[in-house]
């Protein structure tokens, strides 16, 4: 009996909450939030609330074209591959309480790994489209990957270092005990947000899909439902990355100071706090998109290796110093 309940619960987690259905709507909402803020900062009105949903439905209903020269198998399987990758990652991130649906020691590495899948999917998508622009985009995607991934990993592993655990839920429960540690992680937070912008391939780090240079990069040949899945994947990736950063650096669904009350209200409150914190991260990402110009791919690499990586090493050294002095035992 309890096994069946467990299986049903797992299906529920995977498909409804916090899995597919929640991510679908929250991802679309985040796109709306991003676009609306972007428009407001440009003194415009911006899209209506249902806009991302309308885009998604419309794309599903459009004609599906596979270019004659493209590798048909790869071309069609890659979007699903990327989509499945990001969807799995949510299960390890705490959303309404300090522990996630699934967790084990080292799930942080698994999540970080799952979040790199879309970049590779994008590379394959671009490469197998056999369009010149998409191939340039594909090569740039991978080039950029080597730039931002190292500082992003470093920044995300910094909390793990200071908390002494490699599980996201573990880090979060440690944070609840000692919230003052987060002050030490401000530098890592900034690095994580900047490299996240590069990971999501948005301005100023959108060289792989630069609209005015290579006409949209890897996705130039994609139409219809495959494009819809890719776009949804980007939105969900943004949500999950924001959630990860929230969990690692902002205390996830925990409200400081904690409000006493029944468990149910605590969960609900935690969920609301989680939403607000992720929206704050999305707001930071939108702000960056608004006020910067695109940098070239070589300048991006220079920036990552010249600034972000040294800074994240400085952060590491600081944390090691703090730990060895025994201030946080």
């Amino acid at each position: 009996m309890s096994e069946i309940v467990n299986i049903l619960l797992a299906v529920l987690y995977l498909l409804v909450f916090p899995g597919f259905l929640f991510l679908f709507f929250y991802g679309l909402f985040c796109e709306y939030f991003d676009r609306k803020l972007y428009a407001r900062m440009q003194n415009r009105v911006g899209p209506p609330l249902f806009q991302p949903f309308a885009d998604f439905v419309k794309l599903l209903a459009k004609e599906d074209i596979i270019p004659e020269k493209a590798d048909k198998g790869m071309f069609s399987i890659v979007p699903l591959f990327a989509f499945a990758g990001v969807l799995t990652a949510i299960l390890y991130i705490p959303i309404w309480r300090t522990d996630a649906v699934l967790s084990f020691e080292g799930d942080l590495v698994v999540v970080l790994f799952l979040l790199t899948i879309p970049s590779f999917a994008l590379f394959f998508a671009g490469w197998h489209s056999t369009n010149l622009f998409s191939q340039i985009g594909a090569v740039r995607t991978v080039t950029q990957l080597f730039g931002y991934e190292i500082p992003f990993f470093f920044a995300c592993l910094a909390p793990a270092l200071i908390m002494g655990t490699w599980s996201i839920s573990g880090i979060l429960s440690q944070t609840v005990i000692r919230p003052e540690v987060l002050i030490l992680l401000i530098l890592a937070f900034i690095i994580a947000v900047i490299s996240l912008q590069a990971k999501l391939e948005r301005v100023p780090f959108d060289a792989p899909e630069a609209e005015t240079e290579i006409a949209g990069g890897s996705l130039v040949e994609y139409t219809g439902r495959r494009l819809a899945i890719f776009r949804l994947m980007f939105n969900i990736k943004m949500v999950i990355c924001a959630a990860l950063i929230t969990a690692l650096f902002l205390g996830g669904p925990v409200l400081f100071p904690a409000v006493p009350g029944p468990e149910f209200i605590g969960y609900l409150l935690g969920f609301v706090v989680f939403l607000l914190k992720t929206l704050f991260v999305v707001f930071l990402l939108t702000m960056m998109r608004t006020v910067f110009a695109r940098v070239r791919i070589d300048q991006l690499l220079k920036f990552c290796y010249g600034w972000l990586i040294p800074l994240s090493i400085v952060q590491f050294l600081l944390l090691i110093l703090v730990r060895s002095m025994g201030w946080f035992a």
């Binding site: 415009r44 009105v45 885009d55 074209i65 949209g216 139409t223």
Partner: peptide, 21 residues
């Protein structure tokens, strides 16, 4: 542009013919 901003009707400018309606 901001003056008449057609994004309020959901119009986006696309670079690739494959994405356009």
């Amino acid at each position: 542009m901001p003056r008449s901003d057609v994004e309020r009707f959901g119009i986006l400018l696309q670079g690739s013919p494959r994405h356009a309606d």
